[in-house]
């Protein structure tokens, strides 16, 4: 469904992504894990077409969108929803206007249909009744949920989450993770970027670890813990003992 092939990208002379390849299967929840500055957000921006890689291809539903210019790839792009790391809510618009924004821009729904969908997605993320508030009147967790609602409103086939749980309390984290899980039952393909191990393990079908712009390991948790890489050992130190115990026991 989404395939990155040998993506390399340098910004202001520095290599940010170095020969990154990634395959995301339809209907799965993929997690991209890595430390701060590893290039996780950059990967999402490449998928969205916001950054053009120097080398490599981004294939979405069989089309290489790297060579197409903005408007040609429009129909592909509009199948992808994005929840930005800093939410990127339109701060001059109310909650309901935010949720309705991309629906209005797609120009294929009547105002009445738009209203229904907005009510639906707002209640899905548990924000009913906040319609007339502005983003700066919301708490961090509410903002994140609004960002998710805005992305969901256009019913994307693929949805990208950049650090959806960072900075949230355990209750909100659980709510957001449950939202992501329930998307899977709708058949949505999700890509989640995070540096929080527990969340990654809780929701990911496939984990990809990146460090310093390179893919270090990819597969399910077991595959990853079996890699002998020192970085993996350091990065997974929290769960390493527990998890390897679990994995070893399973083997027997």
């Amino acid at each position: 469904m989404i395939e990155l092939e040998n993506i390399s990208l340098a910004l202001t002379g520095r290599t940010i992504l170095d020969d990154v390849s990634l395959f995301i299967e339809k209907g799965t929840t993929s997690v991209i894990l890595g430390p701060s500055g590893a290039g996780k957000s950059t990967i999402l921006k490449v998928i969205l077409g916001l950054l053009k890689p120097d080398k490599g291809s981004v294939i979405i539903e069989g089309r290489n969108i790297v060579d197409e210019n903005g408007n040609d790839a429009l129909d592909v792009r509009r199948k992808i929803g994005m929840v930005f790391q800093a939410n990127a809510l339109f701060d001059s618009l109310t909650v309901e206007q935010n949720a309705a924004y991309f629906l209005k821009e797609s120009r294929n729904k009547t105002p009445r249909e738009i209203n229904t969908i907005v009510e639906e997605v707002l209640s899905f993320v548990n924000l009913s009744g906040t319609n007339k508030l502005y983003p700066d009147q919301l708490s961090g967790g509410m903002k994140k949920r609004l960002a998710i609602a805005r992305a969901l409103a256009v019913d994307p086939k693929i949805i990208l989450f950049d650090e959806p749980t960072t900075g949230l309390d355990p209750i909100n984290t659980k709510a957001v993770l449950n939202l992501i899980k329930s998307l899977k039952s709708r058949g949505t393909t999700s890509v989640i970027v995070t540096h929080i191990l527990n969340d990654a393990i809780a929701i990911g079908d496939v984990l990809t670890v990146i460090n310093d712009g390179k893919v270090t390991a990819s597969g399910n948790l077991k595959d990853i813990l079996n890699t002998k890489d020192q970085f993996i050992k350091d990065f997974f130190y929290e769960v390493f003992e527990d998890a390897s115990f679990f994995v070893n026991n399973k083997k027997e």
Binding site: L50, G70, E105, V154
Partner: peptide
């Protein structure tokens, strides 16, 4: 700075 413009561009809006 708050990525609102990226959000527009990601949806193919100019």
């Amino acid at each position: 700075l708050s990525e609102q413009i990226d959000a527009l561009r990601a949806f193919g809006l100019s």
